[in-house]
Each structure stands twice: as structure tokens, then as C-alpha cells.
């Protein structure tokens, strides 16, 4: 190998390695474009508490060490909830959601995804205690904090028109806690508005999206941007009121 050839080869190998780094630094993941849209379920619910509170007698309390004398020691966690999602009348997701924490006394959390065929789709979501609403309810710490009147059953129903690759969210409204369908928030921390929602402009079209509202509040018509239009219907309200135990 002559000196010229050697230098040329060294330069060539160097450039090859550099090209490898440049190319490997940004190369698309393989995969076809998505053929479906996506319904993303994402909410958190305190839920109804089951069980009861032990009310020890004065004598029982006296037998306990001072630091363990709790006159209202409540036991029990949150009952499991049933999540069901229908798309065009066909049930697409059915799951039992258990409360978080070892004692299952943490809030119920839903995070799931359901694929939606592009086009107009009728979506219905129901999230309710598996064994029906409890008949008796005791105050929880969150009640004392003033959040007493939240819904115990979440439902929503509506027609969504979407293209392949688009995402629609089923989330709770921050103000009423009602379940709604809306596009995701797209934006950086500094670009959000006061309500924490920014228009995405994704072109998603929401038609006839009834949502859960507080029974004591009038229906709230809202527009989250991106062409979201809410048309309240009786279904959500009827179910909502029927399932509440105040």
C-alpha cells in the first residue's frame, strides 16, 4: 500500500465513520403510518370509600398507648370501579380499575388507549363502582377540604370525527370534574393560557359531545379550541344524577 493510497484510505474511513455518526444521529424509526386514530383515557377519581369507622369505647381507648388513641379509626379502602368503553355500540374496552396503594385507599387512576377507525365514531364511556354506588358514605379528607360534591360515576358519550393518526382524550374537566372528550393540549409551559388549555389546531372535529356536569350546575358549553363543540344531551345528566349519593 503506497503512502498516497494509505492516506486516501484513512481519509475515506474517517469520512465513513463521520457519515455513520451523522446518519445514525437522526434516522427515522421504521414503521407504517398509523391506520387508526386513538382514544386516550386519562383521569383520576377519588371514588367512594367502603368499609367503616371503628369507634372504640372509652375503656378500649384507655387501654391503648396515648399515641394510638384514635377515636375514629377508619378502615377499608375504595371499591373497584368498572370501566367500559363502547365505540359505535360495540364494547371495546372493559376493565376493572382498583384503587392505588397497598390498602387501595389511593385514588382510582385510569390510563388506557383504545384505537378508533378513522371517520365518525360514536363513543360512550362509563366509569362506575363495580358493585353499584354505595348506599352510605362517610366524609373523606378531601370532603373536608371542600371537594365534597364530585361525581361518583363518570360517563360521557359523543360522536367524534377523526383522521388516522389523530388522538382524542377522555379526561375530566378541571372545574367540574365531569368527563369530556377533547383534543390533547399541545404546548410548552410558557404558552399555556390561564385555564391550562391551549388550542391545538389539529383539525379534530367533535360533534354532539355530551359531558358529565355537576347536577347542581347548569350545563356548561365550552370550547377547548381545535373545533371542539359540545352539545349537551340528556343521557349524561340523567345517569349522573341517578348515580350520585349525596
Amino acid at each position: 500500500m503506497t503512502r498516497v493510497v494509505r492516506i486516501a484510505a484513512a481519509v475515506g474511513v474517517t469520512l465513513f465513520l463521520a457519515g455513520l455518526i451523522a446518519l445514525g444521529s437522526s434516522f427515522p424509526l421504521p414503521g407504517d403510518p398509523p391506520s387508526d386514530g386513538l382514544l386516550r383515557l386519562d383521569w383520576r377519581l377519588r371514588g367512594e370509600e367502603a368499609g367503616g369507622c371503628l369507634r372504640p369505647t372509652a375503656q378500649e381507648l384507655a387501654e391503648l398507648p396515648p399515641h394510638m388513641r384514635n377515636p375514629d379509626a377508619c378502615v377499608g379502602g375504595l371499591p373497584p370501579y368498572r370501566l367500559r368503553v363502547w365505540v359505535d355500540g360495540e364494547i371495546r374496552l372493559q376493565d376493572t380499575i382498583r384503587a392505588g396503594g397497598i390498602r387501595q385507599d389511593r385514588p382510582l387512576t385510569v390510563y388506557d388507549e383504545v384505537s378508533l377507525t378513522p371517520g365518525r365514531r360514536h363513543v360512550r364511556i362509563e366509569f362506575a363502582p363495580q358493585d353499584g354506588p354505595p348506599t352510605e358514605r362517610r366524609p373523606s379528607p378531601s370532603d373536608e377540604a371542600g371537594v365534597r360534591d364530585r361525581p361518583t360515576v363518570l360517563e360521557t358519550e359523543g360522536v367524534v370525527e377523526m383522521d388516522a393518526g389523530q388522538v382524542v382524550l377522555a379526561v375530566r374537566r378541571q372545574d367540574t370534574g365531569a368527563l369530556v372528550l377533547r383534543p390533547p393540549v399541545r404546548g410548552e409551559p410558557s404558552t399555556r393560557d390561564r385555564s391550562g388549555v391551549r388550542s391545538s389546531g389539529t383539525g379534530l372535529s367533535f360533534l354532539h359531545v355530551p359531558h358529565m356536569v355537576h347536577p347542581h350546575q347548569p350545563h356548561s358549553h365550552q370550547n377547548h379550541g381545535g373545533g371542539l363543540v359540545c352539545h349537551p344531551e340528556g343521557y349524561g345528566d340523567r345517569q349522573n344524577q341517578g348515580s350520585h349519593s349525596q
Binding site: A22, S26, P30, G31, P33, Q166, P184
Partner: peptide
């Protein structure tokens, strides 16, 4: 290499679409 081919900046993160063929750094 940085001058000849500056690292491209992919589109902003967008939770409203399902990302596909995302350009990634394979290393």
C-alpha cells in the same frame, strides 16, 4: 460534520397525533 450537516430539529412534541417514523438518534 456539524457544519456540513447540522443536526436536524424534528417537529415539536405533539400529543394530538400518533407519532410514526420518528427520526431518532440510533446511538
Amino acid at each position: 460534520v456539524a457544519i456540513v450537516r447540522p443536526a436536524p430539529l424534528p417537529p415539536e412534541a405533539d400529543p394530538s397525533v400518533i407519532a410514526h417514523q420518528v427520526p431518532v438518534d440510533w446511538f
